[in-house]
Design a binder for these strands. Structure first.
Lengths: 231, 231
DNA sequence: CGCGGCTTTGATGTTCATCAAGTAAAGTGG
DNA sequence: CCACTTTACTTGATGAACATCAAAGCCGCG
C-alpha cells in the first residue's frame, strides 16, 4: 500500500466528537500514530472475506457495500453504508477474520486504525468502551432489522423498501442517483435482476416513480410507504 | 413480581468464569445485590417488545425464543437461544426499549441483572468491557448469519438448515425432541405451516428423517448437509 | 469496432402460499 | 371424568408469485 497516507490529525476528523470524545491527549496520540488515511476508488476492495482483521475501518466520506459470497448462489449484499454507519464494527470483536468483503461503490475516504490500539484504549477508558458498545449495538441492530424486514416481504414490497431506504436514509431526498446496478439491487434484496427491472417498470407505469437510467425520483411517497409496509 | 428470589451468590454461577471473570469482589458484590434470579415457566414472557430495557437478561438454564411481531404478517422468530448464547445482549446498548419479545419455550432459569450496574462496571473495568464487547459481537454475528443463510435458500434448504441447527448446534445429537411447533418452525424460517409439514413428510419418505410427533431423528446427515447448503 | 456486461421485455415452468377439509391431540368447564 | 372447544397437525387441489430461459438493444471500454 505505497499510496497510504497519514494526513491531518484527528482533531479535524468528523468522528472526533462522536467516537473519540473524552479520549486523553495521550490516547488520541496513540490513535493518530497508528492510523492510515486513504482514498479508495470506486470498485476498490477495502477488505476481503477471510482476511485477517487488523484494523478498524472508519468511513469518513463516500459509500461502500458489504457483502458475502454465497456458497451456492450469487453474492449477497448485507449492507450499503455511509459515513457514521459504523459498519466497520460488525463482527470485528468476535472474529479474527472478516466474514464479508467491503468494496467502495463511490470514491471513498477511509481511516484505518490499528485494532490493537483500539482494544488497548477500550481497556483503559470505560467511557470509550461504552461508546463503542453503543455504536456496535446500533449497527448490528440496523443491519439485522433490514434483513428481518425484507424476509417477510414479497418482491414489490422489497423494491419499495429499498427505494425508500435510499430516498430517506441514505440520500434524504426524493430524487437521487442509484449508486448500484439493477443486478446489485437484486443481490441486496434477494431477487433476480429481471424482476428488479420489471417491478421498477411497473412502478414507473403506475406513476410511483420517475426513472431515467440510474436517476430515480419518488413521485408518490405515501403509496410507496404503504407498499413497503404491506408488501 | 412477588415470586422473585435472589438465591445463591454469583460464585456458583455458570457465567462467573465466562462473563464475570476478573471482576473485583466489590464489583461482584454490586452485581450480586442488583440481580434477580427466577424460574420462568414454559410459555411465560421474559420481556415484551416495546418494554423499557432495565435489566440484562442471563439465561442460566432452559430455552427461549426471541421474536418480533410483524406489522402486516404473522410473528417472525429471530432466534432460539440456549444458555451461553448471550441473547440478552442483542440491542440493549443502542435502544431504551426492546425491539422484540422473549418467551420461555422450556421452563427456564434466568438471572436478571440491573443494566445500570452493568454499565457502571463497564466504565470502570476495561477487561470486562472488552469481554462484553466480544460476546455482543458474537451473538450479533450468529443471529445475522442465520438470517443471511436462510435468505438465499428455498423451502427444502431452509428445513434442512434448521433441522441441522437443532441437531448440531442446540442438542448436539442426531435424535432430539423439537421444542417448538410446526407453526413456530414456519415463523422461524419464514414459510407456511403446511409447507413445513409437507417437506418434513417428504424427508421422512426419502429416509432422511425419522419423525414421531415432536421427536426427530436425522438418518442421513451428509445428504441433509448437502440439501441445506445447496437448497 | 467488437466484445462483454448491463438493461429490458416476453414466454414458460417451478415453487410456494392459499384455500379447503379432515384427523388427532390437548386443554376446559361442568 | 367426560363432553366440548380449541389448537396442532396433515393431505390435496388451485392459483399466484417468482425464477429461469431466451432474445435483443444498449453502453462503455479496450
Amino acid at each position: 500500500m505505497s499510496e497510504d497516507i497519514n494526513t491531518g490529525n484527528c482533531d479535524s476528523c468528523i468522528y472526533k466528537s462522536i467516537l473519540f470524545e473524552g479520549l486523553s491527549s495521550e490516547e488520541l496520540r496513540i490513535i493518530n500514530h497508528n492510523k492510515t488515511v486513504r482514498i479508495f476508488s470506486k470498485g476498490e476492495y477495502i477488505c476481503h472475506e477471510g482476511d485477517e482483521i487488523k484494523r478498524f475501518i472508519c468511513l469518513k466520506e463516500g459509500l461502500v457495500k458489504l457483502y458475502r459470497e454465497g456458497k451456492s448462489r450469487h453474492e449477497h449484499i448485507i449492507s450499503i453504508a455511509r459515513p457514521m454507519d459504523f459498519i466497520g464494527l460488525l463482527g470485528i470483536f468476535s472474529n479474527s477474520n472478516y466474514l464479508y468483503s467491503i468494496v467502495a461503490i463511490e470514491d471513498s475516504d477511509l481511516c484505518l486504525i490499528d485494532l490493537e490500539s483500539i482494544k488497548s484504549i477500550i481497556k483503559s477508558n470505560g467511557t470509550f468502551a461504552l461508546n463503542i458498545l453503543e455504536k456496535m449495538s446500533s449497527v448490528s441492530d440496523q443491519v439485522l432489522q433490514i434483513q428481518i424486514d425484507l424476509a417477510g416481504k414479497q418482491l414489490r414490497g422489497r423494491i419499495a423498501y429499498i427505494i425508500l431506504l435510499f430516498a430517506n436514509q441514505i440520500y434524504k431526498t426524493n430524487r437521487f442517483d442509484l449508486p448500484i446496478s439493477r443486478k446489485e439491487i437484486g443481490d441486496l434484496i434477494e431477487m433476480r435482476t429481471e424482476n428488479v427491472i420489471r417491478i421498477l417498470s411497473e412502478f414507473r407505469k403506475d406513476k410511483l416513480l420517475k426513472i431515467e437510467g440510474k436517476t430515480i425520483e419518488v413521485l408518490d411517497m405515501e403509496l410507496m410507504k404503504k407498499i413497503s409496509e404491506l408488501g
